[in-house]
Amino acid sequence: MGTIEVNGKAFETDEEGYLVNLADWNEDLAGEIAKAEKIDMTENHWEVVNFLREYYNEYQIAPAVRVLTKAIGKKLGPEKGSNQYLYELFPYGPAKQACKIAGLPKPTGCV
């Protein structure tokens, strides 16, 4: 268990830095998690993070990378629906890093 601090308030995370309570999430907090992951959030990063939050709201799971890639391609265009694009944005893995920044639990089956 750990915590992450934003604007003087502490939020609970698990030992890997994933937010414990989904409802705690806001953009400031996302920015703080991104900073800890050494990611400079651009519009393209936010696009993926927001996509993940929408996916989670609809299906109640964080998607596997393969599923995320396919779904992003469908929604945001084929040039963005590739592993290469997503790994450039999130070098340690889109599922892991982007999900963490989006405040979602670690994807099921993610190793």
């Binding site: 299906y59 799971i61 396919k70 779904a71």
Partner: peptide
């Protein structure tokens, strides 16, 4: 809702 995600898998 997760059963509806199966198609994407």
């Amino acid at each position: 809702p997760t059963y509806r995600a199966l198609e994407g898998y």
